[in-house]
Amino acid sequence: MDSIPKNPLLEFNPDTLDYIRKKCNLHQPGRMKEAIKILDEWTKKQTHFKNKNIDPHYLETTIISCKGSMERAKAQIDSVCTFRTLLPTFFRRVNVKHDLGNLYDVVQPVILPKLTLDQNRVFLAKFYGAAFEASQFMDYYNFCIIIAEYLKVHDYLNGFVVFMDFTDINLMDFVTKLNPIELRQALAIFMVST
Rank of each mutant, 00 (worst) to 15 (best):
H98I: 06
E11P: 07
N102D: 15
S79V: 00
L86F: 03
V122S: 06
L157V: 12
I147S: 01
E60P: 01
Q108V: 14
I181A: 09
R184M: 12
I54N: 05
Y128K: 04
D18Q: 13
A75V: 08
L86V: 12
V175N: 09
N25Y: 09
G68W: 06
V110L: 14
T16M: 01
Q119Y: 08
I4W: 00
I64P: 12
V161H: 05
T194Q: 12
Q76E: 03
F91Y: 11
G30C: 03
Q136D: 04
K152S: 14
L26P: 04
K6Y: 05
K67C: 09
L112E: 08
L26S: 09
S79E: 09
F132M: 10
G68K: 03
M138S: 08
L9V: 02
Y150C: 02
N51T: 12
N102E: 14
E34H: 13
K33F: 14
Q46Y: 06
G159E: 04
H98G: 10
T61K: 01
D78R: 00
N158L: 05
V122M: 10
H27K: 05
V110M: 10
A186F: 14
Y58R: 13
L39V: 08
L183H: 06
L115E: 14
S79K: 07
E149M: 14
M138L: 15
A188Y: 01
F123W: 09
T47F: 08
T62P: 02
G101D: 11
Y141P: 05
L178D: 06
F12I: 00
R72Y: 13
N158F: 10
G30Y: 03
Y150L: 07
M191T: 11
T47I: 11
R121I: 08
I54G: 02
N179E: 06
M164P: 05
K177F: 02
A148S: 13
D139H: 08
F91M: 00
V175T: 10
I147Q: 13
D168S: 12
R93I: 11
E41T: 01
F83E: 00
S69H: 02
I20R: 01
V106H: 04
P14Y: 02
Q136W: 03
K45S: 15
G129D: 06
